[in-house]
Design a protein around this nucleic acid. Structure first.
Length: 503
DNA sequence: CGCTTTTGACCCGCGC
DNA sequence: GCGCGGGTCAAAAGCG
């Protein structure tokens, strides 16, 4: 069961971290993205219209609805003037999100104070004034409740839309006939989401020479389709960007079992790290393009860093599916902002690092060729950190469909699958009270809630132990690593270092 | 004998 | 243009 829940938690937490919070509380670039979601109901035909329509709760619960109550017209006018000022300000700054406006204008006490001043200036009886203030206070409380309800509705709708968006993101590459080519680094484009295409190219890989390898791995074939190059796609329409998911795991074991069979094809000494970096290729299926790098952290040699790249073109065993879904989910979350500019990515990372308690180490690496997200599992379960490394790709057009393992392998996957919404431990709706409680600290609240959830921590611990805890040569036969020479590990690695990169 | 690992060489991108 | 570093290849060696 942990293998099912872990990806869900990762998926949803990343969803919150990457998509919701920045859209709501970050700069205007992210506001633009959220606005697109809320106003583009046609993007997903199956979305329930009422759940995604743009809502202006000011129009439904504005002070004008209470113009016959005890508050004066001046008060309402002041309130409206204040609100309009807010709108104008946001419009000038290009922020189209009403949520922001709502957050700003929730401070209705200003209106109350204004009313009090107005009535006092009119020389009314203090008791009458007190009564008016009380009634005004009640009215404002009622209005506040309405606003909360609307916010709740908006948040739920956004969550639903967010989840459906990822379904669309997963299904989109499958349906796309196009392949995106990176004009600068053709060798990097070795991953194609379409399993059939992947098989096709990898079959050619078997006998090609190294010089031809780059072509068979997607470059030349992709370039033969100039109609769909990245340069010709608007940034908003570029489906997904290559990403890397790294997992930092502290383990005394010499290797980490991730459920797949790997064959070592190279080893290099990486600069700045005395530990060698090992290169592995998935051998569970002929031509599987998935590769991973394993290296021990230079700072802490008890920490394994594993990076996964590529997309399995074959069904995965349960153990592998868990990790694949986890990394895929993380990558999907990371790439959900693939259309964003480099600035957005940079700002996002900065935002996450400052907003997400567990992502205090979020950094940007100029050397990384593509966005990288790191799942830091080196801390205790309650502090399981997901460090976000969002790296602007070196080449802006380097995009291609995100190959999600779930889509390619056809196994019992979670990502983008209805099963995702059936997860029981912590459904998105369960977070709504948390989300609306303190909107200004949504991410912190949700992160803390998830991290403190005993089910989550237990599931996380179980999953990690299932992944890491298999000692060398101790496979019970249920582990698909048993037949791999790679998993027995890189003899050069005295301890286990694991990093997963996925795209 | 077949498979895997090792390891030096090669290719490529990037920065200077 | 050159050097550096990352990534990959492939022949040789090791192992069961």
């Amino acid at each position: 069961m942990p293998t099912l829940t872990i990806p869900i938690y990762f998926f949803f937490l990343f969803s919150l971290c990457i998509s919701i919070s920045p859209n709501t509380y970050m700069d205007n670039r992210h506001h633009h993205r959220e606005f697109t979601f809320l106003s583009s109901a046609h993007f997903l035909d199956h979305i329930d219209p009422p759940s995604i329509k743009e809502m202006d709760f000011f129009s439904t619960s504005s002070p004008r609805d209470h113009k016959n109550n005890t508050s004066s017209r001046d008060t309402n006018d002041d309130h409206y003037q204040n609100r309009d000022d807010q709108h104008d300000t946001h419009d000038r700054h290009g922020s189209p999100t009403r949520v922001i406006d709502h957050r700003v204008n929730t401070g209705l006490n200003l209106t109350c104070a204004s009313a009090g001043v107005t009535k006092a200036e009119n020389g009314e009886n203090p008791e009458t004034e007190l009564s008016s203030l009380e009634s005004e206070l009640l009215r404002l409380q009622e209005e506040n409740n309405k606003l909360r309800n609307v916010l709740d509705h908006i948040t739920k709708s956004y969550t639903q839309l967010q989840a459906q968006l990822f379904i669309a993101l997963q299904n989109l590459p499958q349906n796309m006939e196009t392949k995106i080519v990176d004009p600068g680094t053709s060798r990097k484009l070795d991953v194609v989401n379409d399993a059939s295409v992947s098989d096709e190219k990898t079959d050619q890989d078997v006998s090609v020479s190294r010089s031809n390898n780059a072509e068979s791995w997607g470059s030349s074939k992709l370039e033969e389709q100039p109609k769909t190059t990245a340069e010709q796609l608007p940034a908003d329409q570029i489906p997904l960007r290559k990403a890397r998911v790294s997992v930092r795991a502290r383990s005394e074991a010499p290797m980490i079992s991730d459920g797949c069979q790997w064959r070592k094809y190279g080893q290099k000494m990486a600069k700045g790290n005395p530990c060698p970096r090992a290169y592995y290729r998935c051998t569970m299926a002929v031509g599987c393009p998935v590769r991973k790098q394993v290296q021990r952290s230079a700072d802490d040699k008890t920490v394994l860093i594993t990076s996964y790249e590529g997309n399995h073109n074959h069904p995965l065993p349960p153990a592998a599916t868990a990790m694949a879904n986890t990394t895929s989910a993380a990558a999907a979350m990371l790439l959900s902002g693939s259309a964003a500019s480099k600035e957005s990515l940079t700002n996002s990372a900065g935002y996450y690092s400052s907003t997400i308690p567990y992502a205090s180490m979020a950094t940007l690496s100029a050397s990384a060729p593509f966005p990288t997200i790191t799942l830091d599992l080196t801390q205790n379960p309650n502090n399981a950190a997901m460090q976000l490394h969002r790296v602007p790709p070196g080449h802006g057009g380097a995009t291609f469909p995100l190959p999600l393992h779930a889509a390619a392998s056809g196994g019992p996957h979670l990502l983008g699958h209805p099963l995702f919404f059936q997860q029981k431990l912590l459904p998105p709706q369960a977070l709504m009270p948390l989300l609306q409680r303190q909107p200004s600290s949504m991410v912190e609240t949700v992160s803390a809630a998830i991290a403190s959830d005993p089910n989550f921590t237990a599931a996380l611990a179980a999953a990690i132990s299932s992944i890491i805890g298999v000692p060398r040569g101790g496979n019970d036969g249920n582990n698909n690593n048993s037949g791999s020479g790679a998993i027995p590990g890189s003899p050069q690695l005295p301890q286990s270092c694991t990093t997963f990169s996925t795209n």
